[in-house]
Design a protein around this nucleic acid. Structure first.
Lengths: 258, 258
DNA sequence: CCAAAAGTGTTGGGATTACACCCATGT
DNA sequence: ACATGGGTGTAATCCCAACACTTTTGG
């Protein structure tokens, strides 16, 4: 969506293609160089930053919509994506918005009952990506983006600070129940790499010996007979996720602590 | 909603009061006499049983809507109610429904684009109630109800079997993270009572000694200096939830197994 | 006194934690 | 040779699971 015409058409006719009253907000966690960040977009006409999101097509399965929205933004498919909450309580989510606002901001005339300004619930999804591999697309509505450290999130649009907080909480809960990392690490990775990933997500230190013991005991990863060369240091062994056990654990859940 | 007029008005004009495209489905778990059941309703015009549910008012916070729908049905407020998933993937949730169907079933004429027949996502909530204390209300759409054992759920409308399964899974997950029981037990209860509640929910046996030790260690309950007289048997001590710790655990979560 | 249900403690094994030194590698 | 980061084992503790007999009560 890049030309002014497309945008006007989306505003005027979007309700024919998309469901009104429901949107998807994605908290895209990016991991790279031992930092956990989230993707924020500059929505034009608003001061401040907001989350990526979108609408669901009229006949599109919900999960497909979530993947599509993510893919349009990041060009990635096949990543860890999980629904975590529906937001519909904050004043921003219970009231209508003003079309007058839109007129001012985008210079377009809309009717009072335009679909975009009616009350909209938001379904929160979180995703995990390696942000160095992502090619972020902007469009007419969003002319800038940045990766923001999870510990330094600025004031966001609407109730989105609450969305981010909840996403982080659910991610940290999820990591105790599901294996995480498949989409954030190269296919073959070292213990220090996955160790540091988990530490970053949980925001706390994990004993290195105990950590690798645990992952191996759970059967989630297996040691390979190869090493990675990392410059002037001892070469770490490479590991791989044990696909069968990983899938099993994703489905059945794990009960443990790290 | 009991008269035919009210119903017709709801069908024709409901979209002025309620959000289209989104509904709430409630899985109401009822516990009594060591049995875990769910509330099913007979929706007229459909063969088979379905879940209670409803729509969200245009300006109503989502959580309020969930409580209102539950209260209209059970006359209970102040109970354990938790959002657990949004359903929008099954063919039933991705397609429109046919107004012709409605004409046949209810004898009312509706336009092709009536709000009730458009695609509707459903937000799943589960609740825990003591079903002996509940006074179920039926209405024009639902002329019968029954409490169905969770192990004997029949084929339900649309994708609702999936909803029930997920609810049960989430309830069993929740019981490991949050204290549960406040709304299902009298204010003062005995260890055998709460023990049996947990066994029923989890569908498995829990060692009595370890179980009470665990609850006391966690500080969730405290022993009172009273006993309950239960006929020709030894009188069990009464316990109470420790409100402060219970609330804390609800908010912060618990990591443990039983 | 009998039947039914409640109450109560200990132990062994497994898991978790805490902890520090040597090894490998490229420059 | 050295600086940097990787790899490895053990001991103490805690937590969990398993287990059975005695007490209380009303009829």
């Amino acid at each position: 969506m890049n030309s002014q015409e497309e945008v006007i058409d989306f505003v005027i006719n979007g309700h024919k293609d998309y469901l009104p009253h429901v949107s998807i907000d994605s908290v895209i966690f990016g991991y790279h160089h031992q930092q956990l960040k989230i993707l924020l977009l500059k929505w034009i006409g608003h001061i401040g930053w907001g989350l990526p999101g979108g609408f669901i097509k009229r006949r599109e399965p919900l999960t497909d919509a979530a993947y599509r929205i993510l893919k349009e933004r990041t060009r990635l498919s096949d990543l860890f994506l999980q629904q975590f909450h529906v937001f519909g309580d904050s004043p921003y989510r219970a009231q209508e918005r003003s079309p007058a606002e839109f007129r001012e901001k985008y210079g377009a005339v809309t009717s009072e009952d335009n679909w975009l300004f009616q009350r909209t619930l938001s379904i929160g999804y979180f995703a995990l990506v390696d942000y160095s591999k992502v090619d972020i697309t902007t469009d007419f509505f969003t002319n800038d983006f940045y990766w923001c450290d999870v510990n330094e999130v600025p004031f966001l649009l609407f109730d989105q600070n609450e969305v981010v907080e909840m996403a982080l909480k659910m991610l940290r809960l999820a990591i105790y129940h599901q294996p995480i990392g498949y989409n954030l690490l190269p296919e073959k990775f070292t213990i220090p790499e996955i160790h540091s990933l988990y530490q970053t997500i949980l925001g706390k230190e994990l004993d290195q010996r105990n950590f690798s013991k645990k992952l191996l005991t759970l059967g989630l990863i297996k040691k390979l007979d190869e090493r990675r060369s990392i410059g002037p240091h001892r070469s770490p062994y490479l590991y791989q996720f044990d696909k069968a056990n990983y899938e099993e654990a994703l489905k059945e859940g794990i009960v443990h602590t790290y």
